[in-house]
Write a protein that binds this DNA or RNA. Structure first.
Length: 293
DNA sequence: TCCCAGGAATTCC
DNA sequence: GGAATTCATGGG
């Protein structure tokens, strides 16, 4: 991998195991728009970023080397060795071969804790396009304008201070429905310090989950998503309808409880559970895997 | 009209 | 203690 700063843009050359479209569209992230094939605009980390991929080269437009080193290298997980991860998973289990081969370019983004917490509380029992819409509305109304592209304005994800001021009624105006009180409770607990990034970072998995589960509306699945996407805990294994379906199809050949799948994933995939989960999730959803009967 | 969505809380038995 | 129902909202 070679990094070059040319005028105002940053060029990353010869990057392996990365596909921009797959990484953004695999379901881990909601604040992006496709501009062209292999070209996207992303809102993350209080910044607006236009990115383009041409084969194994990636261009981050209007980005300095220091922003890359301070923000984007970590965000895109570029200093992680996915060749090693995929080899480990495939050696462990060739049942993952189709998913990993098909979704070879997914990287797990290192996203902001509070944004992921709020987003995945909203996500429950919703389809991805609608989640995107609500998070964009939320940002437009309560975030800060961080830039324009093609005449369109973009807004950062709101801070906990600004969302903490909202009432249940104000959340309902964003069409979050029954999740409104959950969002109020999440903000309250982040502000009063009972559920924070810093606190959870010091805990083992079991205790970290317990802390997240204190929030109303955060159950096992959302807690695992927060751990995986918002706290970079790559051994987490969120089990939603798609994961349940594909695990039943690949491993069990019959209807199986989430508890049983959770225990199996922990034993079987260990510290790489999160990667396995994301390859499987994206593959299952993209191929419209159906319930096992 | 009915069914489902990157679920979780509540109620029922 | 596990299974069924309820919770808003939008889309197919």
């Amino acid at each position: 991998m070679i990094i070059k700063e040319i005028e105002n843009d940053l060029y990353i050359e010869e990057i392996e195991d990365f596909d921009l479209g797959q990484t953004l569209e695999c379901g881990q992230c909601f604040r992006f728009e496709k501009l062209l094939d292999n070209e996207y605009i992303i809102v993350a980390m209080n910044k607006l970023l236009r990115v383009k991929q041409v084969q194994k080269n990636v261009i981050l437009y209007n980005t300095s080397l220091s922003d890359y080193k301070n923000i984007w290298e970590k965000y895109f997980d570029f200093n992680n060795d996915y060749k090693k991860i995929k080899e480990w998973l495939l050696l462990k289990d060739n049942k993952l071969e189709d998913a990993i081969t098909s979704k070879y370019g997914v990287r797990l983004l290192n996203q902001d804790f509070f944004e992921i917490l709020i987003t995945f509380i909203i996500s429950q029992n919703k389809q991805i396009p609608h989640i995107k819409h609500i998070v964009n509305q939320l940002s437009e109304q309560y975030g800060s304008k961080i830039g324009e592209y093609n005449g369109k304005s973009y807004y950062s994800f709101p801070t906990v201070e600004s969302l903490g001021k909202l009432s249940e009624v104000e959340f309902r105006e964003l069409k979050v429905g029954f999740r409104a009180p959950y969002l109020v409770d999440a903000c309250k607990k982040v502000i009063d310090g009972s559920v924070t990034n810093e606190l959870i970072a010091t805990k083992n998995n079991e205790d970290a989950l317990k802390i997240l589960l204190q929030i109303k509306g955060v159950g096992t699945k959302v807690a695992h998503c927060v751990m995986l996407f918002g706290l970079s805990r790559r051994d987490s294994f969120p089990i939603d309808v798609w994961i349940k379906r594909i695990m039943e199809n690949i491993y069990y050949k019959k209807e199986t409880s989430k508890e049983e799948i959770q225990t199996f994933a922990k034993e079987h995939f260990g510290e790489y559970g999160g990667y396995a989960q994301q390859y499987l999730f994206y593959y299952a959803r993209d191929n419209k895997i159906i319930d096992y009967e």
